[in-house]
Amino acid sequence: MSDQQGMSLIVRVVTRWLFGLILVFGLAVALFGHLTPGGGFAGGTIVACAFVLAILAFGGARGPGATFARWASSLDATGALAFLALAILGYTAGAFLHQWAGKGEAFTLGSTPSIVLLNLAILLKVGAGLFAGFIAVALFEQTAESGKGADA
């Protein structure tokens, strides 16, 4: 994939314009998951799609897709570990997975910070995991590698 220059001018220019839009939309879906339909998984899927689009358009050598591809596997694990760490932080408020970060004003971004953080961790996990899976299947990489995408 690294030797490809990406797709034609039209796709590259349009991707350049749309990439930010898709990414912002995905992040918004994840960050407002506690208020509106969506959440970490839906947002993560959209974010992964943005990066898939970027890597298809610009090729594997440059652009945000290439950068993300190098980090996807580590970010995937980081997201999962972050979720577990946040879950353990719940012990500070009494028990596993408790709402440790308090509550804010209802119907705003900060209304339940702990859920927002959990959503972010899932976003990282799903976004990076899906993208890593895409790359693994696209590159015929180690078969067993994609088994880890299942626990999101």
């Binding site: 596997s73 580590s74 694990a77 980081t78 999962a80 570990l81 577990l84 879950a87 626990d151």
Partner: peptide, 12 residues
Amino acid sequence: LIPLGAAFACLL
């Protein structure tokens, strides 16, 4: 939690 954490730490 412990084995799950270990699994992802191994990946990391």
